[in-house]
Amino acid sequence: MHRPLVRLENVAKTFPDGLEALAGIDMEVGRGDFVSLLGPSGCGKSTLLRLIAGLAQPSGGQVLWPDGPPAPGRIGYVFQDPTLMPWGDVFDNVYLPLRIAGQGRGAARPAVEAALELVGLADFAHAPPHALSGGMRMRVSLARALVTRPMLLLLDEPFGALDEITRFRLNDDLLRLWGEGGWTVVFVTHSVFEAVFLSQRVLIMGPRPGRIHAAMEIELPKPRPPELRMGADYQRICAAVSASLAQAMGSC
């Protein structure tokens, strides 16, 4: 028996206004997994991610960390928006997690530069966020999440607001980084194609209250080249996932 990194047992979240956002969530994320949460808008995906990150507390059930709760910096989080500090440049923004951890600017420089290198922004360290494109801002956000070398990366529809060309490229980059880094990823999306292309496992969620309708293993080879998106296997799996998603939404 391997031990999962994090396990959710019968987790529920009801907001103070009485809205039941999540109910009866059971899930496990193993070390090195790439898990996607796929579901329509409003089915509680962001809420679930916040519960895992410890940014919100469940109103029922438990979020368990078999090897102890993660220390600050062990979880990287990319929000739906880039969420950058407009008063800092790219370097300041990526440096922030290390700064909070008490590292000096000089000592942190190599780590920040390495993170910027990973996302292809090495030449933009001193650009202000308002001078960057939407895709580049998202990359800064990703670099910030990676700079502490987290064991778990939580991504909340990070590419949802981007055009398809940029999104495909960032998906490819993300897969490459995941292949090299060996970290664990929980990825939230409402795109079937994105979920299937990226994940080892897709959890399909349904609404009102949010719950996990089905879990599907994605049987695709492990380095996944961009051409995979044209292949028959990929298309077939996407069709199956779409059907399951339709069921999840219809059963409410």
Binding site: R50, A53, L55, T83, L96, I100
Partner: peptide
């Protein structure tokens, strides 16, 4: 979102005040 980020990384009261609230 930035408030969440500061919480996630365990920022202290003063760090929050100086690096986030004041700017």
């Amino acid at each position: 979102g930035l408030q969440d980020l500061f919480r996630l990384y365990g920022a202290g009261r003063l760090q929050r005040l100086r690096l986030l609230l004041w700017p």
